[in-house]
Design a protein around this nucleic acid. Structure first.
Lengths: 152, 152
DNA sequence: TATTGTTATACTCTATAACTATA
DNA sequence: TATAGTTATAGAGTATAACAATA
């Protein structure tokens, strides 16, 4: 990008929300293509990742972790069940309708993860491992700071 | 957030795309409510901000800066024109249909900016000014790193 | 021929409200 | 009464392709 317009441009480009959006957009581009080549949306993939990390999980936990609204999750559950990637799991609280990864779900998670990790490491190698660790720390702190203000 | 599940949880929560998404979601919450109270969507607001920074701009420049697809921009132009916030501007290249902020557009930009800046400073005061500057730098570097890989 | 932008289309996501079932 | 989740619905965004006008 050229920077001929100088300061005026900078004030917009350095705004926090747009910076987060553009960084995300740039870093997601390759992940997105990769995941979509498996006929999964990014949101579906986030749900699969979260479940690979911890299963079973209910709608509410997944909604928080994946930043997906409950109605969207209902649809995603239906889709992933139809694909045989997740299945219902009974829990003590019978209001909850928790789900867990199926064997097929675990398999596709592993399959997609291979290239996904490679893409990540490629970005990290250009960005710098130290920078990456620092960025992830700052993002977590930012989230806490922003959450604490919105509670008032 | 509790961290009882430890390492397994961490691997998902520390993933770059989800970290960017959650940080953005948390830091945007209050901006969003504020902007929407003026009957503007966040995308419309991004266009207004970009035009307040530099006018006139064509569809392509705005698409890059605001991370909005061209067809969405066409619709946003129509909406903002109907609201009297932007107007068409003729340029040398007659393919371009550049737009600029109207007087009303400048006024609403200033009006919204007051509280928007206050929200920003509130978040910054909790997050730390040094952290904020560091984060913005890292986000820019990340974007460059990710862009350079996707060009291959 | 390539580029800028609009329109058409199909799909997905957001966000709210109304509802069911369970606690 | 409160909570977990589904369904319905309206609006907005994503993404691609087809198109018009201009370079």
């Amino acid at each position: 990008m050229d920077d001929t317009s100088g300061k005026r441009l900078r004030s917009f480009q350095r705004a926090l929300p747009i910076s987060l959006l553009r960084a995300r957009e740039a870093s997601m581009r390759r992940f997105k293509k990769h995941v979509e080549s498996y006929d999964l949306t990014l949101q579906q993939w986030r749900v699969i990742r979260a479940l690979a990390d911890e299963s079973p999980l209910g709608s509410k936990a997944l909604s928080d972790r994946c930043v997906i609204m409950a109605p969207s999750l209902s649809r995603i559950f239906r889709t992933l069940k139809n694909k045989g990637l997740i299945h219902a799991v009974k829990t003590d609280d019978r209001r909850e309708r928790s789900v867990a990864l199926s064997d097929n779900g675990h398999q596709i998670f592993k399959e997609i993860s291979v290239k996904s990790e490679a893409i990540y490491r490629d970005i990290e190698s250009r960005f710098g491992a130290k920078n990456m660790a620092e960025l992830l720390d700052l993002l977590e702190q930012l989230r806490e700071a922003a959450d604490s203000t919105s509670e008032t």
